[in-house]
Design a protein around this nucleic acid. Structure first.
Lengths: 146, 146
DNA sequence: GTAACTGCAAACGCTTTGCACCAAG
DNA sequence: CTTGGTGCAAAGCGTTTGCAGTTAC
């Protein structure tokens, strides 16, 4: 878990960063490693705090800048919630949607929705050109139901 | 349009405010009147600017405080978008979802989605207690397609 | 060696709070 | 008359920017 050299997904992310013209630096490796393995949504500050456990010199600004790059590359996404919109997460794989625990932020991806009929109907009714949609579920995970 | 005394919906909102223990003041009437009639999402500052056309003494702080109250009463809702989460809108009527124009912010409400099967399946698969969902569509309205 | 990256400090924009004055009921 | 509401100014918070030193390549 803590040795990113042993994590295939970390390697993929780092390779993609490098192939996109970015350099592989210690702070970036740390951010990548934490994001790849996180099962819960993370605020930038939380990422910063965890990152400093591994790399004490890490700066919060670097966390923001790295999240920005990872988001542009489609590896990370921002999650919007009632209480705030400043948490981040591994991006969905293809057409997946998100289920977030309102208590602890634990997340699950799922697929299987079919909104194509609804989208076609709405487009016809409104004249809007539909470009995208958000479907996101909120709940309480098993661990937080007690 | 500008005479809130002639608008039934404005009267409803103002009555609800009063019945909830709030006083009816000039700034509140202005905010209510603008929100009720807006067909586009509005930032607090936009609301403030428009409000001052009708009531020059209006303060931005009052706009925030009134939006907060209207949101608590379920009359107004915040809308989240890729570019930011600080726009407000009349709340949906019952179980409706939102279609937002990405260019001008013009909004349309619609209903007719049926996610109950999907929700039941996700709850069974994940063990989460599902408490709510967001379904929101983004597109370009007819006026902005040119 | 050079260009990209880093961390710090300062600036920024949006939102909230403290407070004295004012007005609805 | 009393209490809630108001606007101003200042503080707060998360995020971004400027910059000089550092590091990957």
């Amino acid at each position: 878990m803590s040795e990113d050299a042993h994590c295939a997904t970390c390697d993929e992310w780092l390779t993609l960063l490098q192939n996109s013209g970015y350099r592989l630096t210690a702070p970036r490796r740390v951010v990548v490693e934490i994001m790849v393995h996180s099962t819960h949504v993370l605020e930038p500050v939380e990422l910063y705090d965890r990152g400093r456990d591994q790399f004490p010199g890490l700066g919060l600004v670097t966390v923001y800048r790295t999240l920005e790059k990872l988001t542009q590359l489609g590896l990370v996404q921002r999650v919007h919630q009632e209480g705030g919109c400043n948490v981040y997460l591994c991006a969905a794989q293809g057409h997946q949607h998100l289920l977030v625990c309102e208590v602890c932020g634990k997340i699950v991806y799922f697929s299987g929705d079919d909104l194509s009929d609804l989208i076609a109907r709405i487009a016809a009714q409104t004249g809007y050109q539909i470009r995208g949609h958000w479907l996101q579920f909120f709940g309480v995970c098993r661990d937080c139901q007690g």
